[in-house]
Design a protein around this nucleic acid. Sequence first.
DNA 1: TTTGTTTATGATCATATGGTCAATAAAAAA
DNA 2: TTTTTTATTGACCATATGATCATAAACAAA
Lengths: 105, 105
Amino acid sequence: MSGEALEMIAARFKALSEPTRLKLIIALEAGEKNVTELMELVGTTQTNTSRHLQNLTDSGILARRKEGLNVFYFIADKSIFELCDHVCGSLERRFQSQQNAFRGE
Amino acid sequence: MSGEALEMIAARFKALSEPTRLKLIIALEAGEKNVTELMELVGTTQTNTSRHLQNLTDSGILARRKEGLNVFYFIADKSIFELCDHVCGSLERRFQSQQNAFRGE
DNA sequence: TTTGTTTATGATCATATGGTCAATAAAAAA
DNA sequence: TTTTTTATTGACCATATGATCATAAACAAA
């Protein structure tokens, strides 16, 4: 595994390492939405929403489509959901084994 | 999906968002190693290696075992490799489609 | 044209992060 | 005991990151 490849993999993980960005991704699972809709769904400012959307777009996770005044964002890499599901499963197993350890093996 | 759950998922991704930490994980795929071995494999200082190992251990990705002067680290959550493979596949597909676009659809 | 609406960007700030050096454990060997 | 080896921790620094405010850009409507 080359250093450059590692950097790209790390960058992909970094894009997903922020709760607001995860919220945006989840909000877009059902289909494309414009910035105002997304801003209301994730509960932050317009500027902040725009910044996070840019981050995710640069990372290749989202893509954008302009229509009049609106910019619609949508999922460009749908495999992202499998990734999130994978992490969820891993965390669930971790908590389960912690609970088992606490109850006495 | 609760805010707390999102924070935990984000934290897991953040632990994986650093090339040196990915190197450490890959170095441990074959089996446990002590800090000095890992330090030489990833090519950084002992202090820095120790810090990253602590990060990964706190995240539940690695675990540690002490034996005399040595501390051996090993993979605690083996599902991490599927996660990395998943990202690799996603990036490969992305570059492939970029190449196709450049050559003219 | 002017006005209003939606989105993006520049400047700035506080905090987080990764890295380093020095010092400190902790355990084995002399 | 003292010395050596291995690993961790505290203090510090430079940079990165997320958030915010004000402004600008892009476009539609009046």
